[in-house]
Structures are given as C-alpha cells and as structure tokens.
Write a protein that binds this DNA or RNA. Structure first.
Lengths: 154, 154
DNA sequence: GGCTATAGTTCTAAAATAGAACTGTCAAAC
DNA sequence: GTTTGACAGTTCTATTTTAGAACTATAGCC
C-alpha cells in the first residue's frame, strides 16, 4: 500500500484514515478536545516520544486540522489550536468514545461523562439520518457509486 | 506507550483506539460493511499483505468484532462476519466517511452515496444529543470525570 | 497426475517507533 | 555573570512492525 497517496484515493474513508488513522494521532486529537494546546502538554499527558509528537503535529498542521499559533515572541513559542476542519472531527472522536463506553467498559463505570450545555443533560451521541432524523443502522443503508468513484474508475 | 494494555486504560477513546485505531483495521472494516467476508476478498480489494491480513482478522475475532464462521467443511474454509459489536462500529465509519466527504473532497465529487432505506432518501449522517436531539458541537459539551476515571485515579 | 482455488504461514528487507540524550532560547535565581 | 529551569523541539541507536514475495496444505476438476 502506498500510504503517501492514501488521501487521494476515491474513497472518503481512506482519505480520512490517511489523516487521522493511527493511534497517536487519535490520542493527540483527544487531548486537543480536552483543551491541551502545547507541546509539553501533549508530551507529558500522552508519554509519546518527542520525535513522534513533533512529526504528528506537523502532519496535523499540514492537513489543516491544527493551526500553529505563536503565544510568545521571545523565545518563539507556539501552541496548536483546532481549526474548524479539526473541530469537525468531533463526531468521529465521540463515536469512538461512545463505542468504547458501550463495548469496552469494565466494572468501574464510565471514565468520562458528557453534558450538553444546550439542554443541560448528560447525554450519549446518536447518529441519525439528515433527512428523516431516525437513528442510523448499517443494514438500513444502501450504498452506491457517486460521481467521484465513477470518474476515478473511468 | 504500552499498546498491549491500551484497551484497559481509564479512557473509552483509548480502548476503542486499541481495537480499531490503525490504518489496516479501519480499511478492513470498511470492506466488512461493503459485504466482503472472505480472506481472498479482503486481500484482493485492499492489496494488504497476507500476513498482516491474517493478524488483523485474528485480532478482530479476538475482540469479538468479527465471527469466524465455517462455510465449507472439506476443505475447512471460514468467512468473517460482523457481530453486533462490530455492526455498532458503523457510526465511527460513517463519521469518518462524512468528514472525508466534507473536507477531503476533490473536483470529481463524492466517491460513494448513501441511501437510507427507511426514508428512501440520499443522506448524510448527523450526530445528535440523545436527550434533546440537537446536533452536537464540541464547544457545547462539558466533560467531567465519571466513576471509572475516579476509581482508576483514586 | 497436473491445474486451480482458498486460506493461510514463513522468510528477509525496509520502514516506523521507542527511548534517551542533545540543542537553543530566554527568564529568573543566586 | 553564571547557574538553573522551562519550553519546543532535533538527533541518535536499538527494537518492533510492515512490505513483498515465496511457500504450504487441502480439495475439486479435467
């Protein structure tokens, strides 16, 4: 597999996997959503090697998921802030958290609880159809090739 | 990082990442949702090395995401079917597809279109709050430690 | 017996990751 | 004015993982 061109495959899952489809990147994004912004912050909470953290942050900046924003001029220091493109990853992270809550729990109960500021309640994320609002299940979905697939295949 | 115990961390995201947090596993799951079931089917559509495919399938079976079901007695042949735990990964996959559609598209248009059999329409997945039904955004969610986190740290 | 299909296993080379040490800039403490 | 510490990385070697290809095993068909 040529991982370096995975983001150009005629498949939206592949393109997403190209950007966020590895362990460290997903864990770094978790920290971002928990308001971590600085190199040392990521490094100490994740115990990731500094080399890999540096690589992953560069990649996330390159793909427009994080912005590298200076917060100190001398010495030059930067923090990493989620862009809108990065914030839009939230459903992916929440879907993974919810699956973990449901299927990987232990007797100690949930590690984190989520409260929706809008309604004030503790909630779970639910994925619904944009058209009818009903919860989505794999077996009720029919997939067919769109224009991007047809063009790619000729 | 001790990846071999990542599935026991007091964090549901880590636990999910431990199971599906790598490139090949996510691509294999895509094929599962596209109704691929057999070793040769995965291998030829993904161009994954046979060794890694074998490893990943074993792992998915071990975690209860796929069931290894015999479809031929002599010679012994098996196919890999999504369990309910596996089917429940659908929101993760769909969230990734949707993000790719939104942020990684090119001029050729969407690779795949999704039709909801229930309402008949072409749709996008939307993540909503289980309590009030409103679409979720990262900034409207407040996170606090649950019993599993407190026990793990305390 | 020879050919094909399926589902793997085994081998070596290349690439990625871990773990630790090192670099450079500046502020504050002594 | 030199030492200490914080921050944001880079560089180095050893280990682990992955890629790529070849090999094994079982059975049906001609």
């Amino acid at each position: 597999m040529k991982w370096d061109t995975l983001d150009e495959e005629p498949c939206s899952l592949s393109r997403t996997v190209a950007v966020v489809g590895d362990r460290w990147t997903l864990l770094i994004l978790r920290e971002c959503f928990l308001r971590v912004r600085r190199f040392e912050g990521f490094q100490s909470s994740l115990q990731i090697t500094r080399h890999l953290l540096s690589e992953r942050l560069k990649k996330l900046v390159r793909f427009g998921i994080l912005r590298r924003v200076p917060y100190s001029e001398a010495p030059k220091r930067y923090e990493y802030i989620l862009t809108q493109k990065g914030l839009d990853l939230y459903p992916i992270i929440m879907a993974m958290v919810h699956w973990g809550d449901t299927h990987m729990g232990d007797e100690r109960g949930r590690p984190l609880l989520h409260q929706h500021k809008t309604c004030g309640k503790q909630f779970d994320p639910v994925m619904v159809c944009s058209e009818c609002g009903e919860p989505l299940h794999a077996k009720q979905v029919h997939v067919h090739a769109g224009p991007g697939r047809k063009e790619a295949l000729g």
